[in-house]
Write a protein that binds this DNA or RNA. Structure first.
Lengths: 128, 128
DNA sequence: GCTTGACCCTCCAGCAACGGGAACCCCCAT
DNA sequence: ATGGGGGTTCCCGTTGCTGGAGGGTCAAGC
């Protein structure tokens, strides 16, 4: 399978696939003409990576997840720990965004949004 | 005022202040020895920027906000539009994170987290 | 007057996770 | 032979800084 076919199957851009190879997440064979050749197992790994990325795991987390996936002797506790840590980061990110959201929402509501220059948003930013 | 004093007053790292100057968000005078000298109005602007950044506005948005702030003839509608657009982005970011959070939470809950290799998290990532 | 330490400066590299684009090779159909 | 659609490498740009090297400056203490 060549790269564009794999891209279609996995939903990952070809650029991304090359990048993942470059940083050692996957390996690919080469055809005599220099083209990358992917095996089914490579496609499988790439799809795995795509889903992990979609869940927000960092590349380094993905590397660890892939290693755990390939390790038949893994302990599910290790996977869970990784996921829980990531989940905690998501939680705190959400909390942070929600706080911004609340403040912004308030300010936006208070703002007349007309042609006059007076603006509570700017006033808040410039306060003190 | 020199840079470390401004850093203390605004809560921004000196590096960040230099960076903001480099990209033209603020300007500073120079002392004869080459040291940056900040006026009270510069400190004020930097504090403004710090609060805008804390609300998640991008640097370019901050540049626009600052311009609006300085423009006595601004229309509050312009500020509001900017804030609303940003708010919409925050909303969608939150939605995206919440979706990840929900999936991950479910998977984490299902995972035994013991020494056995079987793991619903990996199974989900590898599905199909 | 000399050293020491705390400042300040500029410039360069790097982070994450790619995306865009140049410059080039390869293969097949017309 | 020429055109179009693959593929390849390599390098720059993104966002918003942060760290560090290598060097000048200043005030205090001896």
């Amino acid at each position: 399978m060549n790269i564009s076919e794999v891209a279609r199957e996995t939903g990952l851009p070809a650029k991304t696939i090359r990048y993942y190879e470059e940083i050692g997440l996957i390996k690919s064979l080469r055809d005599t003409n220099g083209y990358r050749m992917f095996r089914v197992s490579d496609v499988h790994k790439l799809a795995f990576l795509g889903r992990a990325r979609a869940l927000g795991f960092s590349i380094e987390d993905c590397r660890r997840l892939l290693a755990l996936y390939e390790d038949q002797c893994r302990a599910s506790a290790d996977v869970k720990a990784l996921a829980e840590e990531h989940l905690a980061q998501i939680d705190s990110k959400i909390a942070q965004l929600r706080s911004m959201q609340a403040t912004l929402r308030e300010l936006v509501e208070e703002c007349a949004g007309d042609r006059r220059p007076d603006c509570p948003i700017l006033r808040d930013l410039a306060k003190e």
